[in-house]
Amino acid sequence: MSERRRRDGDRQKPALKEKIADAVDISKNLVLGLPLVTMVGDREMTIENYVGIIEYGDESIKIKCKAVNVALCGKDLELKTMTEEFLYITGRFKCFSFEY
């Protein structure tokens, strides 16, 4: 129960931050820890502002970001480049979803 409360609290915190970000008009991915995702069709994807890899396989990748996790599935997925700032993934993507 306590764990759940903490999570609720976690979720309400960004709401305040979001309001502030709206008010000050600065980019939300920095303030709220949201990933910046750039996709080129179904082949290339760049994810900035990530934390780490949760699961990595040929057909599905899960990436942990600060506020929300990113899940990707497809074929021949490959982590082309990894730096502390961004991830560069290639392959043939099928679906892209956010997980909480």
Partner: peptide, 25 residues
């Protein structure tokens, strides 16, 4: 192996062209 790669990246060790082949990276 994902953890291994995560830590590598965090410590500034460059890793690229990662492919997964039956559980082996």
């Amino acid at each position: 192996p994902e953890r291994f790669i995560n830590i590598c990246v965090r410590r500034g060790i460059r890793v690229w062209d990662v492919r997964s082949q039956g559980g082996v990276f």
